[in-house]
Simulated scan of single mutants.
Amino acid sequence: MLDGRLLVDAHLHPPRLSTLKPAWTRWAERYGAPGWRSAFDEDGVVVPAAFDELLEAEGVDRAILLCEYSPKVTGIQPVEDLLPIVKHNPDRFAFLANVNPHVHYPIAAELLRQVELGAVGLKIHPVHGGFSAADPMMYPAYQTCAERGLPVVVHCGTSTFPGSANTMAAPELLDPVLRDFPELTVVLAHGGRGWWYDQAAFLALMHENVWIELSGLPPARLPDYYQRFDLRRLARKFVFATDWPGVPGIARNARALADLGLDDDTLAMALAGNALRIYFKSTTYS
C-alpha cells in the first residue's frame, strides 16, 4: 500500500533487453527513474525478486505486466519472459496477452494460447503494429475477449519510436468496435496522449465499459489535458498506470494524482478500485 491506500499499476514493461531495439532502451534511460536497471541482471534479464522488491518499495499492491509483438518498431517482448515474474509472486503480478495480426494467425488461437498461460486480458498496439484497432482481422480476438469477459487495452496515444504509425492511435477508430461488441470492456492506454484527449474522454463518459488508463501521463497535467471536462466526474473512469520503466517514479506519480484534490472514493477508484474491477472482477476499492 502507499500512504494507506491500495495501489495498482496497470501498465508495466519488464522485458528481456536483448529482445528490444535500441530506441526502447534510449526511451527508458531518458524518461525512467534512476536505478530502473536494478531490476535486471547483467544480461538484461529481469530478476523477479529484485523487481518484486522494487514495486514493494513503491507501494504497488498489484501490477499488470505487458508483452509486445511489434518486430518493426520496438522488437519482440515474448509473453514467456513474463511468466517467471508472475510465478515469483502471483499475488502481486498478472499479465496481459498481446497479439498482432501481422505476426499471429489465426489470431484467436494465439490469444487463447496466452490466456491459457494466465493472461487476464488483451493489450493491442496498433501504433507499433501498423494496423487499425477496427481492422476485421482483430475481430476474432475481440469476440474471444467478449465471450470470456476479458478486457481489451488499446494503445491510444502518440509514440516517438521510429516507425510508429501514430495515425492508428486515434480513439475514434474504436467506434465500430464499440458498436459491434457493446459488451466488451475497453481500456484506452495513454488516455489519448498527444492530440486525442477529448476523444478519449468523450468515449469514456459515453460508454460505461470504456476506461482511461493514465500510463505515460504526468498526473499534474491531467487538468490541462482534460480541461473541457469535469475532472472529478472523468476521474471516476481513470485507471492508474505508469508505463514503467519510462516514469520518474510510481509512488511519485500516485501521490501527484492524490494531490489533484479528488474525493476519497474517486481517488480510491482511480488508484486501485477500477483496475481491480476490470482485471480481477473485484469490488474492493480501499
Results as ranks from 00 to 15, higher is better:
Q114V: 04
P219S: 12
A134G: 13
T25V: 15
T144M: 12
L12C: 13
H11F: 10
H207M: 08
R232P: 01
G44Q: 04
H190A: 06
L7N: 04
G121F: 04
F240R: 08
T19I: 00
L173Y: 06
A254Q: 01
V247G: 00
Y226T: 09
P34L: 04
P78K: 06
A10M: 05
G118S: 11
A119P: 03
Y105G: 11
V210F: 11
F131I: 03
H207T: 08
F40N: 03
T160M: 09
W195P: 07
D175K: 15
D243P: 07
L83N: 03
P171S: 10
P182K: 13
T25S: 10
E80M: 03
D263C: 09
L12R: 01
P22D: 13
D243Q: 05
A275G: 05
E53M: 01
Q199K: 08
P223C: 03
E147G: 07
P15V: 05
G35F: 06
R26S: 14
A33D: 08
A97D: 10
A241S: 14
N100V: 08
Y142H: 13
P171Q: 07
V8P: 00
I124N: 03
T19V: 02
A109L: 13
Q143S: 12
R277E: 15
E116H: 14
P162M: 11
K281W: 11
Q227K: 15
H125E: 10
L262W: 00
L271K: 01
R30S: 14
D91M: 05
G121D: 09
V60S: 11
R26T: 12
W195M: 12
